[in-house]
């Protein structure tokens, strides 16, 4: 916690002096409080106007039937009951999102970690490899979606072309086949894995060299060093990546929306949660229903994060450097 009277420790005077000083200090504290609040005021105003108010309003909307044009009509929990019991597309979009999260989060983290491990060795042209792996993350999602449609076009795309020419294989329908559509999207998220690679790489470079030297003296090989030094020390980074990716994947929207024109086809296999939410809100104008979906998403993300935090016993923190909130 923050010391309320930072200078108190250096005081040595008598009680009277101390009293005078504490008055002066409370003045200083008040002045600091004033300046602190002035400096953070943009964010505070934003917190109230662009975060707190909408969260509250969205909870209130979720209990109404609301189409913007006419005033909201109170319906209680009907929206929630309807989506949970009587909406096949809702359950489809939720299960699609959960399946894709289970598919994509572990794979992306593992691939990012593997690539970072390789890049961390003394290989030639490390900086070039790093750039090549990072650049795909810069492609705007709309362009990325169109690019993926064309690469994996079953009839004329280069992927099936290469499969045919090199291996004589008739490639699958990729994004047009309900069994292949999610794996194809997974390939896209693997192509844009560079962000995680850069973060893992930085984490790897933070590991003190002395630990590896100590392991060398004990006669440890590459595999043992990775298992007993690198991985334990990187668990905080893995943990951070896990939380961030889950939050992001539950909100996946742009790429599948552009690829399918918002339809989520084939067989609704690319209809993700936020796509369906968007449709409820801005196609069907069912703002109440969509707000309920948004709140449910919020609760799901919250629950996931809590579970991850509760089960974070595997995360290794060295030297009490835990948390960002402690003063550095």
């Amino acid at each position: 916690m923050l010391p309320l009277f930072p200078i108190v420790n250096c005081l040595h005077g008598g009680e009277q002096m101390a009293a005078i000083r504490s008055i002066r200090e409370s003045k200083i504290v008040r002045r600091k409080l004033m300046w602190g609040l002035i400096f953070i005021s943009p964010w505070l105003i934003g917190l109230i106007g662009f975060t707190a108010y909408p969260i509250g309003a969205s909870l209130a909307y979720s209990l109404t039937d609301y189409a913007i044009m006419s005033p909201p009509k109170w319906v209680g929990l009907e929206n929630y009951v309807e989506m949970l019991t009587d909406d096949d597309l809702f359950s489809k979009s939720l299960s699609n999102t959960v399946i894709f999260a289970l598919l994509s989060v572990p794979t992306s983290i593992a691939v990012a970690f593997g690539l970072a491990l390789m890049l961390n060795q003394r290989v030639m042209g490390k900086a070039v490899f790093r750039t090549i792996i990072f650049v795909p993350t810069l492609v705007p999602s709309v362009a990325l979606a169109i690019m993926w449609l064309w690469l994996f076009n079953p009839q004329f795309g280069v992927v099936n072309g290469m499969l045919w020419e090199l291996f004589g294989i008739n490639g699958p329908g990729w994004l047009t086949d309900e069994d292949w559509s999610k794996p194809t999207l997974l390939l896209m998220s693997l192509w844009t894995v560079g962000y995680g690679v850069v973060i893992f790489l930085a984490g790897l470079q933070d590991i003190p060299q002395s630990l590896y030297e100590a392991a060398d003296i004990d006669g440890a090989g590459v595999a043992q060093k990775t298992r007993h030094v690198t991985i334990p020390l990187l668990t905080p980074v893995i943990f951070f990546q896990l939380v961030i990716s889950i939050i992001a994947i539950f909100q996946i929207f742009t790429a599948p929306h552009v690829m399918t024109g918002g339809s989520g086809q084939p067989a609704k296999s690319l209809l993700f949660y936020v796509m369906y939410l968007y449709r409820q809100a801005f196609v069907y104008m069912k703002m109440g229903h969509a707000s309920g979906m948004a709140w449910l998403l919020f609760l799901i993300i919250l629950a996931c994060t809590l579970v991850i935090f509760r089960t974070s016993g595997w995360v290794h923190y060295s030297g009490g450097e835990r948390g960002t909130t402690t003063k550095t």
Binding site: L47, S58, Y61, L277, M287, A294, L297
Partner: peptide
């Protein structure tokens, strides 16, 4: 820091309105 976790759709509809 905790507000980073709030999904965009939660604030999207009231802000739009």
């Amino acid at each position: 820091l905790m507000t980073i976790m709030i999904p965009f759709p939660v604030t999207m509809i009231p802000l739009y309105v």
